[in-house]
């Protein structure tokens, strides 16, 4: 960053400053307005929204779209649950439940397993530590590709299961490299002395290495968690039946398959008169907007606080590759 004192104040310079700020304001607007527009539509009466003219503020304010979505697609029951309970009771088969379960299980298992793998590849006296690291590095460059993986998962019964969300991504070379480079920066004497005292490797990892790795685990954990929250394509190809649908895939279905919406509408109109009335006020656009916001709001709330971890992650990744 240049310090302002180097720069002479000139008229063209000031003009540039003004133009620059205006351009960046326009850019910020372009970045943020699409989300705001969705929020406005999602908070407006569905039928009224079809008239158009909704720019910055809802005209007829309502939470109807949200309550309708949460009721009809069975997301609400999961909302009040604590994270731990969602994991235990993910048998409730709600999209939100599967999403949360996936994020929690996927992130925790991956951090522990890949962290331990990274630790094993840093144990210097272990004769296989370098080959082990190389074997996993290969996976960064070569892979079977979409169809061979799909056929193999089908064969071993991984499709149509919750396992397919976390087991195939349990160990990954990228995270392994980052954690390993972090562990290598720690003083070796600590694990060495524990080893002399008779601690086994798991104990050393859990009791000594993991607490020291909290910064890198936090950085990677956020990245992995957001990745799990956002992924939809694996749901589409491995779990097509819909039993393990996550929020992202529900939104995708609303976006792509209008049949699904019709079905949801019919479900609602089959109910009481009040439900019928509520359903009559919903349009596809408002319904999609509400679902989009349900998926987006957790990210929007979380990312400003975690962005520095992401920046750290991308910088470590860039240096270490």
């Amino acid at each position: 960053m240049k310090q302002a004192s180097y720069i002479k104040r000139t008229v063209p310079g000031t003009v540039f400053d003004v133009i620059n700020v205006v351009l960046l304001l326009v850019l910020s607007f372009i970045m943020i307005y699409p989300f705001w527009n969705q929020l406005v539509i999602s908070l407006n009466d569905g039928i009224d929204a079809q008239r158009g003219g909704l720019y910055f503020w809802p005209r007829i304010f309502t939470f109807g779209n949200y309550s309708y979505i949460l009721k009809t697609s069975g997301m609400l029951s999961a909302l009040g649950w604590s994270v731990a309970r969602v994991v235990v009771e993910c048998g409730k088969h709600t999209a939100l439940g599967w999403s949360v379960a996936r994020v929690v299980v996927g992130t925790l298992t991956k951090l522990v397993a890949t962290g331990f793998l990274a630790y094993v590849t840093t144990v210097k006296f272990f004769s296989f530590h370098k080959p082990l690291r190389r074997l996993f590095l290969i996976t960064m460059y070569v892979s079977g590709g979409m169809i061979p993986i799909y056929l193999w998962y089908m064969k071993i019964g991984l499709t149509e299961s919750f396992t397919v969300y976390w087991l195939p991504t349990l160990l990954s070379a990228y995270e392994m490299m980052i954690i390993a480079s972090y562990i290598e920066g720690l003083p070796e004497a600590m694990s060495e002395s524990a080893r002399i005292d008779g601690a086994n490797e798991i104990t050393i990892f859990v009791k000594i290495i993991m607490p020291l790795c909290i910064p890198v685990f936090a950085a990677l954990g956020v990245m992995v968690a957001v990745g799990h929250w956002n992924s939809w394509f694996d749901v589409l190809i491995y779990n097509p039946s819909g039993e393990y649908d996550t929020l992202q895939i529900s939104l995708r279905n609303i976006l792509i398959e209008s049949d699904k919406i019709k079905k949801l509408m019919q479900d609602a109109t089959a109910g009481s008169a009040a439900a019928k009335n509520a359903a009559s006020r919903i349009s596809t656009t408002s319904m999609r907007a509400a679902t989009t916001m349900i998926v987006t709001i957790p990210i929007v709330c979380v990312y400003p606080f975690f962005q520095k971890y992401f920046v750290k992650g991308i910088s470590i990744g860039a240096v270490k590759g």
Partner: peptide
């Protein structure tokens, strides 16, 4: 400005597609 410009990176492609569809639809 930096924080705002990061926002779209953190949401999924499904969300982006849905938003873009709403914005660019004929209505």
């Amino acid at each position: 400005t930096q924080t705002i410009s990061y926002l779209p990176y953190f949401v999924s492609w499904v969300v982006v597609a849905s938003i873009v569809t709403t914005l660019l639809n004929s209505d």
